[in-house]
């Protein structure tokens, strides 16, 4: 996705601070990176927060280096292959952020989406043993997402299209955090299917009458 400066919702300074210091779980880091890559403002802030880290890193210290360590390093580099700078990838119309190329090499259409309802499908990127899961969520243009309640923290980064809920309108690049047990009901905008990157700490619970029928399926998917 090309960098744009129109993001309205950003990770807060403390989140970027933790990201710059490397103290954040890499699953959450993937969501932050997907936003930062599209947001000039946050990219700049990240660079500054890394500079703060560098100031501490460069403090003089009394640490001694083991004998033979340099010889060992020299030996190692003689066997190591140097990385050549990659040629600039031609800009395509694809809105996939570079950090997600590993999982989405050929655009969203080529993914093996799993259908949840006629209007909603998902694609799982990764999950850890604690139960944190990162997935893509695709909602048909104009579709109501079912009312849902989170049983854990949820992060959403909008990759394509836009959606709105009781609190506002969110568009490409926006980074949203919802805490446990907030209840909300987003609607995808009419002009385009909405694709989001989502991180879930616990399974979503649907709260609408018909949707309740889907709960066991979603939970199953979450623990699968």
């Amino acid at each position: 996705m090309n960098q744009n400066n129109s993001c309205q919702y950003h990770p807060d300074t403390l989140t970027i601070n933790a990201f710059a210091a490397g103290t954040i779980d890499t699953a959450e880091g993937l969501c932050i990176a997907s936003h930062v890559q599209q947001c000039a403002e946050c990219k700049h802030q990240l660079n500054q927060l890394e500079t703060v880290g560098e100031s501490f890193f460069m403090q003089p210290s009394q640490v001694l280096i083991a004998k033979g360590a340099k010889e060992g390093a020299l030996k190692a580099i003689r066997q190591a292959k140097q990385v050549k700078p990659a040629p600039r990838t031609p800009t395509t119309s694809s809105s996939v952020p570079k950090v997600l190329y590993k999982w989405i090499p050929n655009g969203y259409d080529e993914l093996d989406w799993q259908t949840i309802t006629r209007e909603i499908s998902t694609f799982d990127l990764t999950k850890n043993k604690k139960g944190t899961k990162v997935s893509l969520l695709k909602v048909k243009a104009g579709a109501h997402m079912p009312h849902h309640r989170h049983s854990g923290k949820e992060i959403t980064v909008i990759l394509q299209g836009s959606f709105s809920d009781e609190d506002g309108i969110y568009s490409e690049g926006d980074y949203l955090v919802r805490e446990t047990h907030e209840n909300h009901s987003p609607i995808a905008s009419k002009d385009k299917d909405c694709i989001c990157l989502t991180l879930l700490d616990g399974p979503i619970e649907l709260t609408g009458f018909f949707s309740k029928l889907l709960n066991p399926i979603l939970r199953l998917k979450h623990s699968a």
Partner: peptide, 26 residues
Amino acid sequence: RVDFFRKQNRHQSDITTDDIYEELID
């Protein structure tokens, strides 16, 4: 350092720092 200590923590996901910190320069 993150990747080093990540390997020791079995709860962490399989995403490495190379996956997330590349390409984030201003």
